[in-house]
Design a protein around this nucleic acid. Structure first.
Lengths: 251, 251
DNA sequence: GCTCATTTGTTCGTATGTATC
DNA sequence: TGATACATACGAACAAATGAG
């Protein structure tokens, strides 16, 4: 044994990986494994420095990198905390509907339609990295601006990841975004999103839901959400009426 | 005079702004004002430390923040350089067309259609922050996957910002993206993008261009591009056929 | 409202490693 | 090989915010 932390380098067996990076990986491991829940305070820098026999500057660098990446946040005088789906990731949480690029975001109201259990099917299970026979939850919701329906969305979630999802009440789905609900209930923050935008004519069923004529041009959004370790957990199809407001993205 | 650099604090007139932040602002000022062109090497950290009478660690912090924000990049052993539209901003440079979320990006070919001078008009000049009577360039292009037209785009650029744009040849527009062309010719990197996605039925003219029936559901993208200091420089309307491939975004 | 212990933030400086040319 | 420049690591000192008493 060369040293207790195994972070610093042995004199032989030269490992070029920086110490701060190894520490960073160790901390990330703890966060991702759920040992530390969102909002929990982690050890202060001095303590980490002592625990891993590194300098405070090195701890600071590791921690600040994780802050930068959005996994932690720090409050001067209080401590360093595990972040959930927060901060700069705020923007991915929701549909953002604007009349034009200078407009303010419209406030959306959510209406829960139904939650059903169903068998797996091709595009969803493929994107979610599941075997075809694995079962899914299907969550249908409608979004309104004022009294006008604007978005109809169908989410597919792996049953094995969300054991007692069907115990949730409609108001759980209506008072908060799906992101928040899943984060709070399953301790599962959202790390990234992929989206595909397309235009489709409204089919009969969807046209009826959205109260538009069949064939109306609708914006279709195919979305895949990821949590830690690039693990996909939700595949969502949305259909949006974009006559009045359009869907905003910023890069 | 308290000290030559004015970065450190006077004993009186207590300014809580950190020194590294002031230095950061000074450096950003130089970059944004165009005094340092993209690719140019800036002074080494030791020299900056001497010039502004601060420690090397403080210079490092300021510079690394600007690296983080994408304004600079560093190469160990070589120096610190001014970035153009590069690195993590790569993703905003182009339409990304995918069949599905696991597909590879399609390769697009650009066809230049025409560049015309025109008067200002409401939505464009409004978004570009111009007075209504200021003139614009209008650039029409078509994008193909293989031999199929997939995107028709119309860009509006302020004439006063791009003096001799009409001297460019079609091949200038076809061999490179508009981003690259403008960056190289006008030293104008792209810092951010705003986009609005909507679905519209194809009108006669556009349907003809894209070789689809009138009324086909098309994805409409309204885009505004910004350079330094949140200065908008291009307003673009695109119409995309999304039957085969859809437009990808990642958050 | 004040003081104190705790914790993060800023700034300094030094030494050494590593990449480039 | 040597000079230059960035990267890593250490640690000290003080500032500023927080919360408890």
């Amino acid at each position: 044994m060369v040293n207790r932390s195994a972070l610093s380098q042995s004199k032989f067996a030269h490992d070029p990986t920086p110490v701060y990076f190894k520490l960073q990986k160790i901390l990330l491991e703890q966060i991702e494994s759920g040992q530390w829940e969102p909002g929990a305070r982690i050890s202060p820098e001095r303590e980490l420095a002592r625990m891993y026999s590194v300098s405070i500057g090195t701890v600071k660098k590791a921690v600040l990198n994780l802050v930068q990446q959005g996994f932690l946040y720090r409050i001067q005088g209080k401590g360093t905390f595990v972040a959930g789906t927060t901060l700069k990731r705020e923007s991915l949480r929701y549909y953002r509907l604007l009349r034009n690029l200078l407009d303010d975001e419209a406030v959306l109201k959510i209406k829960f339609i139904e939650l059903t259990e169903r068998g797996g099917f091709y595009p969803a299970n493929r994107q979610l990295g599941l075997r075809l026979k694995e079962n899914l939850y299907e969550v249908k919701r409608m979004f309104f601006t004022g009294k006008k329906p604007v978005i109809y969305s169908i989410s597919y979630l792996p049953q094995k990841m969300f054991k007692d999802l069907k115990d949730l009440t409609p108001s759980n789905f209506e008072r908060d975004t799906l992101y928040h609900t899943l984060e709070k209930r399953y301790n599962l923050p959202t790390i990234s999103n992929q989206e595909l935008f397309g235009a489709v004519p409204a089919q009969e069923k969807i046209a009826k839901m959205l109260q538009v004529p069949v064939g109306t041009a609708l914006l279709q959004i195919e979305m895949l959400s990821f949590t830690y370790r690039q693990q996909p957990y939700e595949y969502r199809l949305s259909y949006c009426i974009t006559h009045e407001r359009k869907v905003y993205a910023e890069i």
